[in-house]
């Protein structure tokens, strides 16, 4: 802890920190924050929903990215070509457009089919969040799939050959050698991609999902206070991004330690 504080103890940084605290106190005293108690519950609910959307879409997106990356790195052409096309199309168009295509496009198409309206899934399909989750998952899968392609391709050939020489089956080879090493290669970029995903979550507010960005917009509309909700919002996102950075740094350290420890 003390070692972590050391880089902050330089004279010019102490001055900057003092100025920063000054600005913070000035903001806290002179700006309007009296709306916070009224919206407290809504704010926490919004943060919770943002985190929930982030975690679900990252987990499912990553699970999808593994086959997408593997198909491109080692699959036959009839799997590699669609996977590559998927990545190009999703990465080549704005996420906002994809979200709107799913929500407004599919959302206006589904009610035309009576069997969908009478199905068990209909209560969910009428809401906005399933479309948000699907759009964000697809987007994460495409960006991460591209990274996983490189990670799978970068696993040393000798390792795969020696595993085959040991008589490992293809499934075992993938599970024990190929996948763990690819994930370890991809891990440093995974944190950055997850922060990019966090920064994409406010887009779902445009299709009426009430996460933290939507809560801040509502405060602005209700009270006509412009800057304060936005500043709070920026702080919340920075805190979440910082937490993600720390989490992945921790994961990376553990992963590296394990690889050098046991063989």
């Amino acid at each position: 802890m003390i070692a972590a504080l050391k880089p902050l103890m330089l004279p010019h940084r102490l001055v900057l920190i003092a100025i920063g605290i000054g600005i913070f106190v000035f903001c806290a005293l002179t700006m309007r924050w009296d709306w916070i108690p009224d919206y407290q519950d809504l704010i926490f609910e919004g943060i919770w929903r943002t985190l929930w959307i982030l975690v679900v879409s990252v987990v499912f997106g990553f699970l999808l990215a593994i086959p997408i990356g593997f198909a491109q790195a080692a699959g036959p052409w009839y799997l590699a070509a669609p996977a590559a096309a998927f990545c190009t199309v999703i990465r080549g168009t704005p996420l906002l457009l994809q979200i709107w295509l799913l929500y407004f496009g599919l959302g206006s198409l589904f009610p035309q089919f009576p069997w969908i309206r009478s199905s068990e899934l209909w209560p969910y399909l009428r809401q906005a969040w399933p479309y948000a989750i699907v759009a964000l998952t697809i987007s994460y899968a495409a960006y991460e799939g591209e990274i996983m392609r490189g990670a799978f391709a970068s696993v040393a050939k000798g390792q795969l050959e020696s595993a085959r020489a040991f008589g490992m089956s293809r499934g075992k080879l993938f599970r024990r050698i190929w996948l763990p090493q690819a994930i370890r290669t991809a891990l440093p970029t995974l944190g950055g991609e997850t922060i990019l995903q966090l920064k994409a979550t406010p887009l779902v507010a445009t299709i009426t999902v009430v996460e933290i960005y939507a809560v801040a917009s509502r405060v602005r509309q209700d009270t006509f206070i412009v800057y304060e909700p936005l500043l709070l919002l920026a702080c919340i996102y920075m805190l979440i991004a910082g937490a993600i950075t720390l989490l992945f740094r921790h994961l990376e350290k553990r992963g590296v330690g394990r690889s050098s420890g046991g063989t």
Binding site: I195, L198, K199, A200, T201, P202, L203, Y213, Y227, L230, L231, L233, A234, Y237, M238, A241, G242
Partner: peptide, 13 residues
């Protein structure tokens, strides 16, 4: 700051 705050929020601010 710019890289950890969503573009949408920055655009509004």
């Amino acid at each position: 700051v710019i890289r950890s705050v969503p573009e949408l929020v920055l655009i509004l601010i």
